[in-house]
Amino acid sequence: METSDKLRLGVNIDHVATVRNARGSAYPDPIRAAKLAESAGADGITAHLREDRRHIRDGDIDGLMATLTTPLNFEMAATHEMQAIALKHRPHAVCLVPEKREERTTEGGLDVAGDESRLGAFIAPLIEAGCRVSLFIGHEPAQIHAAARIEAAVVELHTGAYCDHHYEGNYAARDAELAALKEGARLAHSLGLEVHAGHGLTFETVAPIAAMPEVMELNIGHFLMAESLFIGMEAAIRQMRALMDEARA
C-alpha cells in the first residue's frame, strides 16, 4: 500500500448534536454543520451513533446520507442493532469503536485481539455490502496484527493518551506515546492496512501525527467544535487543514 502526501481531514460533528440535545431543540443542526465543514475543506464527515443516542440520532444519519457530498464515516459499536443500521445505509466507511454507557468519550481502543473471531464474523457482511471497515485501536502490535487477520481495510490509531500527556505537561510520556504511535503506523502500513488517527487532537498536538507518512486521514471533532465557538467553524477547520498540510510538507 502506498503512502500519500495528501492527508485527509474527517470532521466529527457529534458535539453539535450534544449542544442541540442539551436543550431538546431542533438546533444547532448537525446536518448544517456537516455541510459547512464540507465547504470549509473537510474531506469527509464522521458521526458516532451511540447506543444511548446521547448526541447523534438515527434521523441525523438519515439526513447525512441524503445530504453529504463527501464520504460519511459511520462510527458505531459492534452490536447487531448498529450492524443493521449500517447495512441499511451502506455508508462509505464504518468505524468500530468500543463503547461503555458510563464513559464521557471513547476511553481506549477496541480489543480486536481478544475478540477476533466475533469481530471477524461481524465485519464480514459490512465488507460484502461495500463498506470500508475501520477499527479504532491502540498502537499495540497484537491489536494491529489481529486487525489485519480479520481483513479490516483501515485501522484508526487512538491518539488520546498522546494528547492527554501533552496537556498534563508530562512530555516524556507524551514523546514515548508518540514513538509508539509511529511504530504502530509503520507496522499497520507494512501489513497492508490503511492508517488513520484521531482522538483529542488540537492545533497544538496535530503536527507530529500529521507528519507521519503512513497516516492517510485524521478524524477530529470535539476540539474543532469547541474552537468554533470562538473563531467560527470555517476558520477552525481551515486552520487545522493548514497545520496538517504544513506538517505533511
Score class of each variant (00 low, 15 high):
T46F: 10
L49A: 06
L49D: 08
R50V: 03
R50Y: 04
R50D: 06
D52H: 11
D52F: 12
R53H: 14
R53Y: 09
R53P: 08
H55I: 11
H55Y: 12
H55Q: 14
R57D: 07
D58S: 00
D58A: 00
G59W: 07
G59Y: 06
G59H: 10
G59A: 10
D60V: 02
D60S: 02
D60A: 02
D62V: 02
D62W: 01
D62S: 06
G63M: 05
G63C: 05
L64R: 03
A66D: 13
T70Q: 10
N73V: 10
N73M: 08
F74C: 06
F74K: 05
F74W: 08
M76D: 03
A77F: 10
A78Y: 07
T79K: 11
H80R: 14
H80E: 14
M82R: 13
M82N: 13
M82C: 06
K88M: 06
H89E: 01
P91A: 03
H92K: 12
L96Q: 09
L96I: 15
P98L: 12
E99V: 06
K100D: 12
K100T: 13
E102H: 11
R104M: 13
E107T: 08
G108A: 13
G109P: 04
L110G: 11
D111Y: 00
V112F: 01
A113W: 06
G114M: 11
G114S: 11
G114Q: 11
R118Q: 09
G120L: 12
A121P: 00
F122M: 07
F122H: 08
I123H: 05
A124N: 04
A124S: 13
A124D: 13
P125D: 07
L126S: 04
E128A: 14
A129F: 02
A129Y: 02
C131Y: 03
C131I: 05
S134A: 15
S134V: 10
L135A: 05
E140K: 14
P141Y: 05
Q143H: 01
Q143G: 05
I144D: 09
H145A: 04
A146Y: 10
A146E: 10
A148D: 00
R149M: 08
R149D: 10
R149L: 09
I150F: 09
E151H: 14
E151N: 13
A153R: 14
V155C: 04
E156L: 01
E156V: 07
L157D: 03
L157C: 03
H158G: 03
T159S: 15
T159V: 08
T159P: 09
G160I: 07
A161Y: 12
Y162P: 09
Y162R: 09
Y162D: 10
H165V: 00
H165L: 00
H166V: 13
Y167Q: 02
E168G: 02
E168D: 14
G169Q: 03
G169D: 04
G169P: 04
Y171T: 14
A172D: 15
A172I: 13
R174E: 15
D175F: 04
E177K: 12
E177M: 10
E177H: 07
L178H: 12
L178C: 05
L178F: 14
L178I: 03
A180G: 01
A180K: 14
L181W: 09
